[in-house]
Amino acid sequence: MKKLIIAFLFISLGLFLTGCRTKEVEVPLIIYDYDDLYMQQFEELIYDNKNYNSYRFESYDSKNSQIIQNDIINDVFLDNPRVIIVNPVDRLGVYPIIEKAKEKDVPIIFINREPLKEDMYSYDQLFYVGAKPEQSAIFQADIIIDLFGGNSYYLNELDKNNDNNIQCVILKGEPGHQDAEIRTERVVQELTDRGFHIDILIIEEAYFSQEIAKEKMTDLLVEFGNTIELVISNNDAMAIGAIEVLKEEGYFVDENDNGVIDRDTETWMPVVGIDGLPIALELIDQGYLSGTVLNDSKSMALAINELTNALVTGEKLSDIMSDLEDDKYIWIDYKKYTPNDK
C-alpha cells in the first residue's frame, strides 16, 4: 500500500514537473484593433521577422477600446513580463500604463501610435518604434507633385480645368488622431511650401475606415462630381473605399484590355494613399491607385524584434543595429510606391 502511494506521488510529481518545464519568455504584443487591416499585416510581419529564440509573442486584441486595453495590461502585468509591446488605442491615455510599468519596472515598446513626448520622457524604459508622421505627408506630397508634372507653374493635363490649382478632396482619418492631423496638415503645407496651389474642396473625416470612406465619397461625387482633380487620403483603407465608389460610378476603364487602367482624363481620377497595404499595392499595379507611402513595416518589425531581444536578454541597447534616438526612439523611414515602382 505504502509503495503504491509513493509510486503515485512520484508519477504526479513527474507530470507536474513536465507541466512546468522551462518556459520561454512571453512577450505580450497588445494590438489596438485586429479589425485594422494594416495592424493585422504588421503583426504578421512582427512574427515573421522574429529571428531570436529568447522569447515568443503572445498577441492581444484591444478591440479599439482603451478600457479593454487597460484590462489586458493589468492582466499581463500580473505575470511580471520582461517587456511588453503596446500599440495604444488612445495615445493620450497611455500615461497610466506608463505609470504602472514604472511601478513594476517593466520596459514598454510602443508601436504604431506615438505617445506624447512628455509621457515618453517620464520613464527611461520606454521605446517607440515607428515613422515620423510628417514624413509620410512629405512623401505623399512628392507623389502628388510628380503626378501633376513636377512644375508648379505649369500643371499637366490632370489639372482638368487648367486653372493651375489642384482641386482636391481630403479623406481625413479620426480627428484628433496624430496621424490624421499631421498627414492632413503636412501634405497641404508641403505642397504649398513647394509652390503648388491647392484648392481644398472639402476635408471629410472618414476615420481611417474603408466603409465610412465609401459613404463619404458617394456624397462627394454627388456634390463635386468631375471638378475633383485629386483625392488625398490619410491612409490606404480610405483610398480603397474611394476607389470602390469611383469604380461603381463608371470611373477607371481599361480600354485596351492590357490589365492596366488607362489614364483617360474623363474616367480617371488620381487617388493617393498612405500605408502601403498589399491590396493598395495591387491597385497601384493595376492603375487604380496613383501612389501610396509605405510604412516600411518590415524594417519596423525587424527593429521591434531586435529591441525586444535586447531587452529580454539584457543586451546593451547601444549594440543594436537600429539607431536609437535619445535612447527611446527608433525612426524608420517611409517608402514611396507608385506605378513606376512596379
Binding site: Q66, I67, N70, V89, L92, G93, P96
Partner: peptide
C-alpha cells in the same frame, strides 16, 4: 474601477 477617457488626459 478606473479607466481613461478617450481623447483626454483624464481618468
Amino acid at each position: 474601477s478606473i479607466n481613461t477617457i478617450h481623447g483626454t488626459r483624464w481618468r
